[in-house]
Amino acid sequence: MQTLKINDVILRTVVKGVVFIVLTLGVYLFFAGHNDPGGGFIGGLVLGSGIVLLYITFDIETVHKGMPFDFKKVAALGVLLSTGSAIASLFFGAPFLRQADDYFDIPLLGKTHLTTVTIFEAGVALTVIGTLVTIILSISEDG
């Protein structure tokens, strides 16, 4: 291996700012899936890309200090959330995967369209994040 000390201060400084833009775009895409292109899958992919960017720039131990998640468990939690929101409709006498929606008056936000599809999509996003980060870490880890 090279003994020369590698100077990557530019990369670290840029990534510290860029990763927030990436994560913000991911959250925006997640909520834009209501009416526009976007949704849980794409939002999860972009959020996972931001996390992978952190793992590439810094190392595994530094990122684990700030984000102590086991991403396999994150994927499992996502699947549980999605299937849970799908099964929950059975207890109200509705078919499997039936979703409910209604308009609510929320202070500051005004009349808002809330739906249980958001819970399902959150599960999809968590599954995609967990699977993506697990795959990337497994195939690119050293040693």
Partner: peptide, 12 residues
């Protein structure tokens, strides 16, 4: 530059 993409612990 380094031969690996995700490092366990960065050398510095």
């Amino acid at each position: 530059e380094r031969g690996v993409i995700v490092e366990r612990k960065s050398r510095d």
